[in-house]
Every structure is written in structure tokens, then in C-alpha cells.
Amino acid sequence: MNMSLFAAASIGTGIMMIVAAVAALIVKKLISAIIIVGFVSLSASLLFLLMDAPDVAITEASIGAAISTVIFLWGRGKIGGEQ
């Protein structure tokens, strides 16, 4: 019972991650791509928790949610200009 629910959750999360990863590479504006990569990172943290790895889930949540997004946004702001 629990196992089939978890299987449905992991399959749904995996499909969303794959679609979001493709969208991050083909979407027009770079800032949208950065936001979508942040979503992929957060979903990866959910998969880590489902794989019984809470330590890795904590690390991925803090790194992916905050630090990685801010580093890319900072780089985007420093480049400036088009796209």
C-alpha cells in the first residue's frame, strides 16, 4: 500500500524533473532557466528523502534552494546585456 503510493510519487517527481530539465535548456530567458533549475534541485532533494537519505536531502535543499540559485543570479547580473 505505502510502497505503491511511494512508487507513484517517485515516478511523478521524476517525470516533472525531466520535463523541467528540458525546459530549462530550451526556455528563452536565462533567469527563467535559473528558477527552473532551482525547482529541479528541490525535487532531487525530495527523491533523496524517498531513497532514505535524509542527510543528503538536507544538504541538497539548503544548497539547491538558496546558494546555487543566488550564485547563478549574481553571475547573470554581472554579465548584463542581452539574454
Binding site: A66, T69, V70, L73
Partner: peptide
């Protein structure tokens, strides 16, 4: 894990 999520998730939105 949920605690870390709820504490830190707003940082990305704040950065955007």
C-alpha cells in the same frame, strides 16, 4: 528535512 525546507526555501524567491 521539512524544517530546513521551510526555513530556507524563501531565500531563492527573495533572490529572484
Amino acid at each position: 528535512v521539512a524544517l530546513v525546507y521551510s526555513v530556507l526555501s524563501f531565500l531563492g524567491v527573495l533572490a529572484v
